[in-house]
Design a protein around this nucleic acid. Structure first.
Length: 187
DNA sequence: ACAGAGATCATCT
DNA sequence: GATGATCTCTGTG
């Protein structure tokens, strides 16, 4: 029932945070929507940027719970993460836009809203206007999160685009939602 | 529907 | 010199 961003507890294990972010509302400077897809990256997780310790790039990942971690992927896409316990983070992979949709489409260089508007981490960051200047900032300012109002039914599956720890089922999605970056494998 | 390639660059080996 | 927590476009079935 709370819509107070400060009510969101980031100080938990990363898998539980990744699950709780499904159905949450994410707003970046006034545009955003409902988070429908996340991935967890742990501290002792070979697929995680934090696995080999702190570097200039992943410094924000070792900040306090609720820190924003943004990094450049493949030399051209930005990816948005929310830090839980130090060294752990949740990658926000997709959301259903419902606020500032027109601005999001403009940033994506689309004529109008489109099913892939914020479907995929690179598209999401571009649609929301996330930049490297957001790296290291705290949730609750330019980037805000509100708790889900409903209990979401959540699908799980292996994480996308990694080459290590490929079998960990640490990808989460809102069951049956449109706008997922990729389908979840059947089990 | 699916497969492959190119873009592009900071970080790491 | 190789590798990505990706995306888009093109070719094929």
């Amino acid at each position: 029932m709370s819509t107070d961003p400060a009510a969101f507890n980031f100080d938990t294990d990363i898998v539980s945070l990744a699950r709780r972010l499904i159905g949450a509302r994410l707003l970046v400077r006034g545009s955003g929507g409902t988070v429908i897809e996340t991935e967890a990256y742990g501290r002792d997780d070979p697929a995680s940027h934090s696995f080999r310790g702190m570097t200039p790039r992943n410094r924000a990942m070792f900040g306090p719970p609720g820190t924003v971690y943004v990094y450049l992927s493949y030399g051209m896409h930005l990816c948005l993460n929310i830090v839980g316990l130090p060294g752990e983070a949740v990658l926000i992979r997709a959301l259903l836009p419902d606020t500032g949709v027109e601005e999001m489409a403009l940033r994506r260089e689309l004529e109008q809203s489109h099913p892939t508007l914020a479907s995929g981490p690179g598209r999401l960051a571009k649609a929301l206007g996330v930049t490297l200047a957001d790296n290291g900032t705290m949730v609750g300012n330019d980037i805000a999160l509100c708790l889900p109002t409903i209990q979401a039914e959540i699908m799980t599956g292996p994480r996308i685009g990694i080459s290590r720890a490929v079998d960990l089922p640490w990808r989460f999605g809102l069951s049956g939602s449109r706008g997922l970056s990729r389908p979840f494998p059947k089990r």
